[in-house]
């Protein structure tokens, strides 16, 4: 039951975002609201079981969903800017020292590992190549391996990011 309700609310919110600015009732026209309500009911009836397969509803918590944009606009954006300037420097000068290192993610939920892997892909000179299914360890390709890391077995996720503590933010959102 709760899966259908969550799907209905998410679908209706997405419809509202897509049809913003269409009419007179503040931003929406009444016909758009009615059509969105009916289509969201239909979507929930058809796809509720498929979209919410797990029994874990912690991401439906509004507080977590509100921290997510703060995280994206704050520390994540600063890290992305720094990473892009770094890669621009490497494109222009051609100084690279690539290598694949092993990073234990320490995330217990799938969504946490997903967010951490995507954050690593878009931030400092690293892309996630593979993930170990049993231990949630990430294999990270680094464009410029700092001296000394090639002899270490594993590298903590905290050390990849220079300025902000990204793993702590992700733990706050997803766990």
């Amino acid at each position: 039951m709760i899966a259908y309700l969550v799907t209905f609310i998410m679908a209706f919110l997405l419809y509202l975002v897509f049809s913003a600015g269409s009419g007179t009732l503040w931003l929406w026209s009444p016909s758009e609201l009615l059509a969105g309500f009916l289509l969201s009911l239909l979507t929930a009836a058809v796809a509720g079981k498929v979209l919410c397969r797990g029994k874990d509803y912690r991401m439906a918590n509004p507080v977590r969903l509100l921290i997510l944009p703060v995280y994206i606009l704050g520390p994540f954006f600063i890290e992305v800017t720094r990473a892009n300037l770094d890669v621009a420097y490497r494109v222009i000068t051609g100084k690279i020292r690539p290598g694949i290192i092993r990073v234990p993610s320490g995330m217990k939920t799938d969504f946490g590992a997903f967010l951490l892997a995507n954050s690593i892909t878009l931030t400092p000179g690293t892309i996630t190549v593979d993930i170990s299914e049993e231990t949630n360890d990430l294999f990270v390709h680094n464009i410029n391996v700092p001296a000394g890391w090639e002899t270490r077995d594993t590298v903590e996720a905290r050390e990849l990011f220079g300025l902000a503590n990204i793993p702590a933010w992700i733990r706050r959102i997803a766990e």
Binding site: I96, R97, P98, G99, I100, I101, R102, I127, T128, V129, D130, F139, H141, V145, W149, E150
Partner: peptide, 19 residues
């Protein structure tokens, strides 16, 4: 990246390859 590594492409000039 995952597909490329599975198909056997080695990273060029790599100093370390844990995968």
């Amino acid at each position: 990246a995952r597909g490329a590594h599975r198909s056997g492409i080695k990273p060029a000039q790599a100093v370390v390859d844990r995968l």
